[in-house]
Design a protein around this nucleic acid. Structure first.
Length: 467
RNA sequence: GGCGCUAUCGUCUAACGGUUAGGACGGGGCCCUCUCAAGGCCCAAAUAAGGGUUCGAUUCCCUUUAGCGCUACCA
């Protein structure tokens, strides 16, 4: 078997989209599964839509998410001479021709076709006009009139066209840049790409690509058209569906590992009755094959991604989580004390779906003064006098502890609850709000341990004074 | 309109032509419990419709329906 070589060819017209990430992932998985190479190509042939800085953003996004390419990036804009050369050869071979039709003429043609309710598209006016190379022109491919063609697609199966529904398509634009159709075929040939993995939306133009390979007498690579990643409305996922750029997932506190795992499962499954959902990159690489790629589109579910992100967070070694959390907390304006955070980490770890979820859980550790939810403290039959008693007693008990650790704190507070007469729940709620300010916190004893004796006692006394 | 693709729980999906159609997310309930989570157990929830082929269709074929994509000097 010849080397498996795949390519990911994003166009630098904006930020990397989550659908693009899925394509990139599949390119890398397939290549590496077979011990081959994944190539990064930059499809910058449309200079009108080119966004400055997009290439750098693309590369840093790919690096962040952990998708590594073996070759590239190769910008297509640096290969203009090569595309020109091939377009000339296509003309020489009789498969393409120069066309100098103006935009106005094209628009008028289209108008007339619309009036006659004909399919829109270039009429082929210049096919035999022998337009000179010295006037401004484009190069068009001569789509054969009656030509049946079959694409053997690795995921769609055989796709057959009795007649190619395309009109004479532009290969080389008047500015000397190639269109996607020319550039992709030439590059796939020159870069010895063995498998073309790309989004479903390219299926309709695949006959043209096949025809170009054929015209040049180049063997065509394996084609694999990937099912689309959909929004909740069943349409192709796009900005309209909310945060779909990879960078926004990064900012929202998703883990790259979770994103890759999750996105792999849209359009691919391990099969064989496999019920596993969590796969490392290594496992994915080992198990990924085109045979297991689905052909129906899949809706991108933020709910399931959130769940999976939580799973990945829980599986993170504490030091690793801490390293990822500290910048997030700092960004939220907290003066992080690493030691305090370290103490409470195991408790917050299982309470997170997204990294920033930690902020409201731990902010009480890093604030000088806290706001307390007093109405919540005095609910369910708890009156101020009793709450005050509890705070005072708790402060005393904690102050008298020989060792200030979680078991000791628990014992102390249970004693307080008992002498306050009865249920621990309401008592702990008072202490919880007194110390953290909130009703929802990490477990109480650990929270107190992390806060430290001094601050805890101070907050209990503060609360008593408030009541 | 033309051409093409697609069709299993709400969502992601599994199921050599033979299963009580399985799992996961989400939803509901119970357990655990100092709040919130996490975890455990349980429940509801699907083969788009109609025709074939077959002893037997989720699975193969056809039609219909629905959705999506393409139909640019964009990718």
């Amino acid at each position: 078997m010849t080397e498996v070589r795949t390519r990911f060819a994003p166009s630098p017209t904006g930020l990397l989209h989550i659908g693009g990430v899925r394509t990139a992932l599949f390119e890398v998985l397939l290549a590496h599964h077979y011990g081959g190479k994944a190539i990064l190509r930059i499809d910058d042939t449309d200079r009108e839509r080119l966004v400055p800085g997009a290439v750098d953003a693309l590369i840093s996004d790919l690096r962040w998410v952990g998708l590594i390419f073996d070759e590239g990036p190769f910008p297509q804009s640096e290969r203009l001479a090569r595309y020109k050369e091939i377009s000339e050869e296509l003309i020489a071979r009789g498969f393409a021709y120069r066309c100098d039709c103006t935009a106005e003429r094209l628009a008028q043609e289209r108008e007339e076709q619309a009036a006659r309710k004909e399919p829109l598209g270039y009429s082929g006016y210049c096919r035999n006009r022998g337009v000179s190379a010295s006037v401004p022109h484009v190069v068009r491919f001569k789509i054969p009139e009656d030509r049946a063609i079959t694409l053997h697609d690795a995921v769609k199966g055989d796709v057959h066209w009795e007649k190619i529904a395309l009109r004479d398509t532009v290969l080389l634009k008047s500015d000397g840049f190639p269109t996607y159709h020319l550039a992709t075929v030439v590059d796939d040939r020159d870069m010895r790409i063995s498998h073309i993995l790309r989004a479903d939306e390219w299926l309709s133009t695949a006959p043209l690509h096949l025809l170009i390979f054929e015209a040049m007498e180049w063997p065509a690579p394996v084609f694999a058209h990937l099912p689309p990643v959909l929004g909740a409305d069943g349409k192709k996922l796009s900005k309209r569906h909310g945060a779909t750029f990879l960078s926004s997932f990064r900012e929202a506190g998703y883990l790259p590992e979770a994103i890759l795992n999750f996105i792999a499962l849209i359009g691919w499954s391990a099969g064989e009755g496999e019920e596993q959902e969590i796969f490392s990159m290594e496992e994915l690489t080992r198990r990924f094959t085109l045979e297991r790629v689905n052909n129906a589109g899949g809706v991108f579910s933020y709910e399931k991604l959130n769940w999976m992100n939580g799973v990945y967070i829980r599986n993170l070694p504490p030091e690793d989580l801490q390293a990822r959390l500290e910048p997030v907390l700092a960004k939220a304006g907290l003066a992080v004390d690493s030691e305090k955070l370290r103490r409470i980490l195991p408790q917050v770890r299982e309470r997170l779906q997204l990294l920033p979820d930690a902020v409201p859980l731990v902010d009480f550790l890093f604030k000088q003064s806290i706001d307390r939810d007093m109405p919540a403290m005095l609910k369910k039959g708890m009156d101020a006098a009793k709450a005050r008693e509890i705070c005072v007693a708790a402060a005393e008990k904690l102050a008298s502890l020989a060792t200030f650790d979680t078991p000791a704190i628990e014992a102390a507070l249970r004693e307080v609850a008992e002498s306050a007469g009865g249920k621990s729940g309401p008592v702990f709620t008072v202490v919880r709000i007194a110390v953290t300010g909130k009703t929802i916190t990490p477990p109480l004893f650990e929270s107190i341990y992390a806060l430290g004796r001094e601050q805890t006692i101070a907050r209990l006394r503060e609360t008593a004074a408030l009541l």
